[in-house]
């Protein structure tokens, strides 16, 4: 973070620290103040409060007691929580590469075409971003449903039985599909925008050197947009670890496959709102937040060299 701040554009002209100037700089605080109030109220305070709650335990016999890190010890030895963390990590490992591959391939193809069909496709691939995650999950829930989904009739053409998408063994893949569908278009647009930012003279040079389309794509375009890719990856990572809405929606039609601790967030939600265990639920949320925070920083650190930054 310090490094990042140092990278801020350096002012060449340092203004003289006259009294007027100093008084003017106070305006900075006035501009920032409204946001600062919201930031403190709805980010810092809840975070602090969650931490404070997580250090307490409420029991019928003793009331609320300060138990320090007992809830965390409990969380990190709670098989339901650990299984959930393992599952979202697995989601990250499977889902993110698929998502990146789809969006990168789409963006690279779109970048080479200027036809009407290409423009139309760009919009259509982006459309899921305009659809709320809940609705997306609902729609896929319908499509997966053996009762009114189209899968059975599609597979019958080939004389096969449709897979049961919401079975315990398949629901993981089904969720991967929903999330890919929901976000790939958004990532595609960002990658596409980054690609449009590359100076085309570089391609000219590559062409003269006899590089093929594939070589240009993989050796020039991809490395040049690596910083955009790294950032999308980080945000995908954060999003995936917080997996909540899609499994929560599909739960109601696939209760046997998605249990109340399927992801850490669903677990925390259930603990808080079904069992009123706010203390333990806060510890779970906080522990998850910590895992996400550390994971994304490790990821940023590891990719810093590769993307030629830092």
């Amino acid at each position: 973070m310090t490094q990042a701040l140092a990278a801020q554009p350096v002012r060449t002209k340092r203004r003289s620290a006259s009294a007027i100037d100093r008084r003017r700089q106070r305006w900075g605080w006035l501009f920032v103040a409204p946001f600062a109030v919201v930031f403190l109220t709805f980010l810092i305070a809840p975070l602090g409060y969650a931490f404070w709650l997580s250090l307490q335990t409420k029991t019928l016999a003793f009331g609320t007691q300060f138990t320090w890190f007992q809830n965390y010890a409990k969380a990190f030895s709670d098989p339901q929580f650990l299984e959930g963390v393992g599952r979202v990590l697995l989601f990250a490992v499977v889902l993110i590469p698929i998502q990146m591959l789809v969006s990168l391939a789409a963006a690279l193809v779109l970048d080479t075409l200027t036809t009407k069909l290409a423009r139309f496709s760009r919009l259509m691939i982006f459309v899921p971003y305009a659809i709320p995650v809940v609705i997306g999950a609902l729609m896929w829930g319908f499509l997966y449903s053996p009762r009114f989904g189209p899968a059975q009739s599609l597979f019958e053409v080939f004389g096969l039985d449709a897979p049961l998408f919401l079975d315990p063994s398949n629901v993981f893949g089904s969720l991967v599909n929903v999330v890919t569908w929901q976000w790939a278009g958004y990532y595609m647009i960002i990658i596409y925008a980054a690609l449009r930012g590359i100076d085309p003279e570089i391609y000219e040079a590559a062409r003269i050197d006899g590089a093929s389309g594939w070589q240009t794509a993989l050796r020039i375009k991809v490395p040049m947009i690596s910083s955009a890719l790294v950032l999308i990856l980080v945000f995908a990572l954060i999003g995936t670890m917080q997996f909540f809405t899609e499994p929560q929606i599909l739960r109601s039609i696939a209760a046997g496959s998605i249990d109340a601790a399927y992801t850490p967030n669903i677990y925390a939600y259930t603990l808080a709102f079904s069992y009123s265990q706010y203390n333990y639920a806060s510890a779970i949320s906080f522990a998850l937040g910590l895992v996400v925070f550390i994971a994304s920083y490790i990821f940023l650190f590891l990719t810093r060299k590769r993307s030629g930054l830092g």
């Binding site: 930031f39 809840p46 709650l53 706010y278 937040g289 994304s296």
Partner: peptide, 21 residues
């Protein structure tokens, strides 16, 4: 710097304490 760090805070980790607050 605090603000930048907060971009990484998972929003859903805030839901339960926000609810209690």
């Amino acid at each position: 710097a605090l603000l930048l760090g907060s971009v990484m805070v998972p929003v859903t980790a805030l839901v339960i304490p926000t609810f209690v607050l």
